[in-house]
Amino acid sequence: MSGRNENGDTPVYATRGLIDLLLERAAATEPAQMNVVLDATPAGDFETDLGVDPSTPVLSHVYFPTAGRAVSDVFGVDLGTPAGRGRARFLTHPQGPAELTRRDDLAGVVLLAVPPWERITAFDRRGRELSLTILDAEPPAESLPE
């Protein structure tokens, strides 16, 4: 998502709450696959210091594909995701494999889970595994415009 670690790969950061939610939903959705858009919050927007550069994106939100489903099905336009958001995806492979396939929807970062739904692996769009750091932090509360 930004910067490189000592191994030369781009580290991915996510909140524990998001990871727990994704694994719970994956287990509940099985045997169906999940394919949802993820969004990030800049590390500097968190109330606590996360120990990373303030501009580092931390995956913290998920957009479930419900809003605008009919338009998406017909025209391929996802109205459930705000414009300019969601450069990451979460996918599940209930029957395996534990790697990206040619049939997967790709994004800059893809988080992938397979049964027994205990671990998520991060990949770049080329299928290279990335380091995933899970942070015990809550993203700032968001409010809807009045």
Rank of each mutant, 00 (worst) to 15 (best):
R119V: 13
P31L: 03
A28H: 11
A26K: 09
G84D: 07
E30D: 14
G86W: 03
A40N: 03
D39C: 04
P31D: 00
D9A: 05
W117D: 12
D20Y: 00
E129N: 03
A40S: 13
D136R: 12
L91K: 04
L18E: 04
V77L: 15
D104S: 06
D78I: 00
V36P: 01
L22N: 03
S55I: 06
A122K: 00
A27C: 03
A32W: 10
G44I: 09
A70Y: 11
L59P: 14
V114N: 08
E47L: 00
N7Y: 04
V12M: 07
R4N: 08
A107S: 10
Q33E: 12
V110Y: 08
A137N: 09
I120T: 14
W117C: 10
G8V: 02
G3L: 05
G3S: 02
G86N: 06
G17E: 13
L135I: 15
L135P: 13
P42K: 00
L132N: 01
A122S: 04
T15R: 03
E24Q: 09
L79N: 06
D45W: 03
A67G: 09
G127L: 02
V71R: 15
R89E: 09
G44A: 08
F75T: 03
S72I: 05
P140I: 00
M1P: 12
P97D: 11
D105G: 05
R102S: 14
A107P: 01
R119C: 06
I134P: 07
E47N: 00
L112C: 12
F64N: 09
I134A: 04
R119A: 08
G86F: 05
R25E: 13
A32C: 06
G68W: 02
A40T: 07
A32R: 11
L112W: 13
V71M: 11
S60F: 01
F64Y: 13
R102A: 15
A14F: 04
L130Q: 10
A137I: 06
R87I: 10
P31F: 07
A107H: 09
P57M: 07
L18G: 05
E47S: 02
H93Q: 15
R128M: 05
T56Q: 12
V12S: 08
D73C: 14
G3F: 02
P57F: 10
D124P: 04
L79W: 02
L18F: 00
N7Q: 07
L18T: 03
P94R: 07
P11G: 00
D136A: 13
E142W: 09
T66I: 12
Q95Y: 15
D124G: 04
T101M: 13
L22T: 06
V62F: 03
G3P: 02
R119K: 14
D104T: 08
A40F: 01
G108V: 11
A43P: 09
A28P: 06
P31W: 08
T133R: 15
E118V: 10
E30A: 14
L100D: 06
L112E: 11
T56C: 03
H93E: 12
D136G: 10
Y13S: 05
T48A: 14
L111Q: 07
D45N: 11
P94W: 01
R128N: 12
R69L: 15
P145G: 11
Y63M: 08
A113H: 08
